[in-house]
Design a protein around this nucleic acid. Structure first.
Lengths: 147, 147
DNA sequence: TAGAACCTTGGAGCCACTCCAGAGTCAAGC
DNA sequence: GCTTGACTCTGGAGTGGCTCCAAGGTTCTA
């Protein structure tokens, strides 16, 4: 099948597929006479695996590790379990951080009840002299921001 | 004060300060004879404001809007309130997504109890034929991933 | 045979920094 | 006065995971 068909089946984007090939997540497929990429069922499975991992918010580096194990059926999967545990830890931590943030934001929001002059706005004032929130300050996060 | 001092006071990085200047978040400061940036208390306040907003996970574009209101004390702050409400909405939504993800990951984790051969690993198997998680599939997120 | 729909490559852009090289400036100590 | 070391300057590249684009080539349909 051609790249567009693969993309449609997996629910991915052709650009993403080419990107995965470029960085070695997907192997280089065969080419047709007209130089089109030609994919097989194996490619579908692998891409589905990758996209599922991505939907679980794993990085491509983490996925690379999982693919190694997938490609080596006789190897010991202990590291897979470990990787997943770590990932769960990151997600849990990120949830905690965001919930603190949410609390903080609600508190901030209560500083201004109605639309008024900016100079009287409690929100702008609070941001102005407020402390930088400890939890997020200078923290190199594994789990990214809210945007 | 020089850039390093400003950075130390605010708890920021000199590179970040120069970056903010470049993209217009901070105004260009005066220069000393030796071409060093020279900052005043106003710069400290403004940078603190910006860093506080960033610690609340706002984008620089959102911060740009807030700065506009900060710079126009007579303007109506309704949009500030609105911006904050929207931001809170994003955070809340992201928390919900991550909690679903966490559940999904725990479920996946239970598929493999002990280190064994990769070909027998329930996790690898589950990722392989599992459905891509709806919630995260093809969703252009305002609130970013876990990394 | 024309045109649409697909495919190719290479490169730029996104966000919010972060790091680096190579050069310049400045204060302290000898 | 000279050296040393800490600081600063600029411009540019790199991060992750795509996404979009231009300019051209291929294939399918009417």
């Amino acid at each position: 099948m051609k790249i567009g068909e693969l993309a449609a089946i997996v629910g991915s984007d052709v650009d993403t597929i080419r990107y995965y090939e470029k960085i070695g997540i997907l192997p280089k497929p065969a080419r047709t006479q007209g130089n089109y990429r030609h994919y097989s069922v194996q490619h579908v499975d692998r891409l589905k695996f990758v996209r599922h991992c991505r939907s679980l918010d794993m990085t491509l580096d983490e996925i690379r590790v999982l693919l190694q194990f997938r490609d080596a059926p006789e190897s010991n999967c202990g590291e897979v379990n470990h990787l997943l545990d770590e990932h769960i830890g990151h997600v849990t931590a990120r949830i905690a951080t965001l919930m603190e943030l949410e609390k903080e934001l609600h508190k901030l929001r209560r500083q201004c009840r109605k639309a008024q002059k900016a100079k009287d706005c409690g929100i702008l004032a609070a941001i102005g002299h407020g402390e930088t929130h400890q939890g997020s300050k200078n923290v190199k996060r594994h789990i990214a921001g809210t945007h």
